[in-house]
Design a protein around this nucleic acid. Structure first.
Lengths: 76, 76
DNA sequence: TCGAATTATACCTTTTCGGGTATAGAAATT
DNA sequence: AATTTCTATACCCGAAAAGGTATAATTCGA
């Protein structure tokens, strides 16, 4: 499966908060299976569902210049 | 419909290249109806399909810190 | 190392996205 | 202003996403 960076991003954010996949699914209002697919890199996910999860971390999906990807988390 | 910024982003990029929706759909390999839904802000789109379009512009979807949204296009 | 908790895979159902097409509406060109 | 080009809406259909559930597999702590 593709989509490494987003799945890793979610997984790290979740663990950083000490949540299980199930807890994250409840907090975000998406199904547990969706969280699993998200973290294992399924590429054909719906944007709005992913945003439900990202918003818990203060993020959302947006267009990123391809060669600037890794600088996402640079300070302001 | 929600999702203003992404739809506007696509529409502006497309016009900037002087393409019609139909031309963009052909170049990106997605359906014309999808391009329309994307530009009119449908929120429940699939990530991989949106990326097919964004990649023509050198962009792709990624997590963006919510309060940094408008700075996407800052220079490197 | 064993057992419990967590995560990954698989199956089934419902819902709906994406494509195709047709048509109506808006914009632009002459 | 009329015609052509482009965009928005609406319909139908097939494919598959999302949810639920069950069961392996894995991880982690006692």
């Amino acid at each position: 499966m593709k989509g490494v960076s987003l799945s890793q991003f979610i997984k790290e954010k979740r663990k950083h908060l000490g949540l299980t996949q199930e807890e994250l699914s409840i907090k975000s209002g998406v199904g547990l299976r969706f969280i699993r697919e998200l973290e294992t890199g399924k590429p054909t996910l719906r944007i709005d569902k992913v945003n439900q999860v990202l918003q818990l971390f203060g993020f959302e999906l947006g267009p990123i210049e391809i060669n600037r990807k890794k600088l996402i988390n640079e300070e302001s």
